[in-house]
């Protein structure tokens, strides 16, 4: 070793200190940064809410033992059908309504049934009214939460996007026998929901 050179162990200690310091610094910055990921937007029944890219107005939910498919066949279920009536428009361009999830008190998450019904498209000035059909077990009824997500997104998302949250109550004692007929989505006159 030549004179004046820094001893090896000092180099090692300094490098370790720089590494640990950089790590702590990044951690501190990450804590300060605004939270990443989706942010819930609370909605109320019968009130317009803006949850980009949607404008939503949910009028209510009802439960039925059977529903008729688009071919007028009663659909069997071991659970119960929850129908959510809503109207919606978009905020930017014509698009479909995205993903709706019904969450029960135990945290179980139910997507729109894939068994028969189509979705439909709206645009910023065109409100469309329709019915979402969920199939849930009987013990899921009671206090439910409707979540509205941009298409393909969900809770694990890192994208800082808004999602709609609405408290919905469906009385387990008020299940109608049905069969419920799902009306075609309709385009609404200006101002109507």
């Amino acid at each position: 070793m030549t004179g004046g050179r820094v001893p090896r162990w000092v180099v090692t200690v300094v490098m370790l200190a720089v590494l640990v310091g950089a790590g702590l610094g990044v951690n501190a910055l990450a804590v300060q940064a605004p939270p990443n990921g989706p942010a819930g937007v609370r909605m109320s029944l019968g009130v317009d809410a803006v949850v980009h890219p949607l404008q939503l107005n949910v009028s209510g939910a009802r439960a039925y033992e059977t529903v008729l498919s688009e071919d007028d066949v009663p659909l069997e279920t071991v659970g119960v059908w929850v129908l959510v009536d809503l109207s919606y428009a978009t905020t930017d361009r014509p698009r479909g309504p995205g993903d709706f999830i019904l969450v029960d008190e135990r945290g179980r998450r139910y997507a729109i049934t894939s068994r028969d019904f189509d979705t439909w498209q709206a645009s910023p000035d065109l409100w469309v009214r329709g019915t979402l059909v969920f199939e849930v077990p009987l013990d899921a009824l009671g206090d439910l939460t409707l979540e509205s997500w941009a298409s393909g997104e969900g809770p694990p998302s890192d994208t800082p996007l808004p999602y709609g949250v609405l408290d919905l109550s469906v009385d387990p004692g008020a299940i109608e026998p049905g069969p419920a007929v799902i009306s075609e989505p309709e385009l609404l006159p200006a101002g109507q929901r």
Partner: peptide, 17 residues
């Protein structure tokens, strides 16, 4: 296939046998 109505049943909802 769902035996009840011949629809595709590859997606399973919680506690809905």
């Amino acid at each position: 296939l769902l035996l009840a109505d011949d629809s595709r049943a590859s997606f399973l909802s919680p506690n809905l046998p």
